Amino acid sequence: MICKRFLIFGFLLLSSVAFFAQSERIEYLPTFDKNRIHYGFYLGVNELDFKLNLRESNIPNADIIVESATGFNVGLIADLRLHKNLNLRFEPGLMSNSKKIIFNHLKQSSVPQDSIREIGSTYLRVPLVLKFSTDRYKNMRPYVLGGLSYNYNFSSNEKNQDDNSSGEFRMKTSNFMYEVGVGVDFYLYFFKFSPSIRGVFALNNEIKYDDDPNSKWTAPVNYMGTRGVFLNLSFE
């Protein structure tokens, strides 16, 4: 539901600004795209959860679900023009989010807290992104993008000696993700405004398994990786 609201809001935002850009007769920032390098920053919101794959284990009727939540993104932009329609972008920033993992097979536990883990994550993201743009039309320019990122999870607890038996859910500190998205550059009087919608997907397994190989929390999990949607607003 949240993801659908993201997409609807993003579509309405792109449509409204596109209407404004096309209605303007004056072409703003006519030489902007001739710069070899330019800089900027972005703000945004995200809706993230985990993709879970379970495996056969000695935990009967293992059932785990994830409740997604909304977080925020903020970062800087360094853009290198490789070609008139191709740019390489370096977009380091922070991504913060909090999710809830529910272990339904533990709901009958004598300790109710055993069935729920709150996962707060703050990532330092270091993405390299290729941006493929169309030719400019008046004050707008649609584009698609794709790239890879290294993500350092400050909240991973990977080196914590306690695990789920002590109430601590652990994840890996270093992770890799890929992202794909679409957006539009809008050329305004003083700057370029670029809203984009992106999908983000983990490449590696992010879970840190409990010390007990038969842990009722982590033994059923074969793979757990971040996935979600970004709505970014860039100012360059």
Results as ranks from 00 to 15, higher is better:
110 S>I: 12
214 N>Y: 06
145 L>K: 04
92 P>L: 13
155 S>A: 10
226 T>S: 10
220 P>S: 10
7 L>P: 01
80 L>H: 08
236 E>K: 03
143 Y>L: 13
71 G>A: 05
76 L>K: 04
164 N>S: 10
157 N>G: 08
78 A>D: 07
152 Y>I: 07
53 N>H: 09
104 N>M: 12
222 N>F: 09
107 K>E: 06
154 F>I: 04
147 G>Y: 05
223 Y>C: 13
168 E>N: 14
6 F>S: 01
163 D>M: 00
235 F>Y: 04
139 N>M: 15
142 P>E: 08
214 N>D: 09
105 H>T: 04
225 G>V: 09
99 K>R: 11
9 F>Q: 00
212 D>H: 01
202 A>M: 03
59 I>H: 05
62 A>P: 02
137 Y>L: 12
29 L>R: 07
28 Y>L: 12
58 N>T: 00
191 F>R: 03
13 L>Q: 02
150 Y>Q: 05
79 D>E: 09
13 L>W: 04
43 L>F: 15
193 F>L: 13
189 Y>E: 02
87 N>Q: 05
144 V>K: 13
3 C>L: 12
142 P>Q: 07
76 L>F: 14
132 F>D: 02
100 K>T: 11
219 A>I: 10
43 L>A: 15
150 Y>P: 03
80 L>C: 10
166 S>P: 04
13 L>T: 08
157 N>Q: 06
153 N>A: 06
25 R>G: 14
1 M>S: 11
129 V>F: 08
213 P>S: 07
182 V>H: 13
236 E>L: 13
205 N>I: 11
48 L>H: 15
73 N>Q: 02
112 P>M: 14
113 Q>V: 10
138 K>L: 15
102 I>G: 05
44 G>P: 14
143 Y>P: 14
27 E>L: 15
174 S>R: 01
227 R>C: 14
75 G>S: 02
80 L>V: 12
52 L>I: 15
72 F>I: 00
41 F>W: 15
63 D>S: 06
207 I>E: 03
190 F>T: 00
19 F>M: 11
41 F>T: 15
181 G>S: 06
121 S>C: 08
